[in-house]
Amino acid sequence: MAKDRGPMTEAMYYILLALCQPRHGYAIMAAIEEISRGRVVMGPGTLYGVLNRLEKEKLIQLEEDDGRRKTYSITAMGRLALEDEYQRLTALVKDGKGLVEEEGEE
C-alpha cells in the first residue's frame, strides 16, 4: 500500500467499487446508488473532490476525456487498497457478529 492513511472514508470506498469498471461522473453516482441498494447517495461536490484525490494518489486513472466527460477506472494500486479495506471491514463485521447479533435477538 502506498501510505498508511488510516481507514478509508465511505465515499472513497464506494467510488473505488464503482470504478472497478471504467465510468464517468454521473454513471459513478448511479452505480454507487445501485451497489449500495439506495443507501448511499453521493453529491457532486463529494464525488468531484474524492475523484481528484484518488487520481492524485494513483488509486484511479483517467481513461478518457472527451472534453465534456472524464472517464475513470481503478488502478492496480487502487485494487490493492480496496482489497485491504474490504478485509478490514470484513474483520470488523466478523468480530462483532457473535456479540451484536446475539444482542439483537434478545
Partner: peptide, 14 residues
C-alpha cells in the same frame, strides 16, 4: 437533487 456535499468528513478537507 442530492446536496453537493453528502460526506461531512470529505467536506471538512475543503
Amino acid at each position: 437533487i442530492p446536496e453537493i456535499h453528502t460526506d461531512p468528513q470529505e467536506q471538512a478537507g475543503t
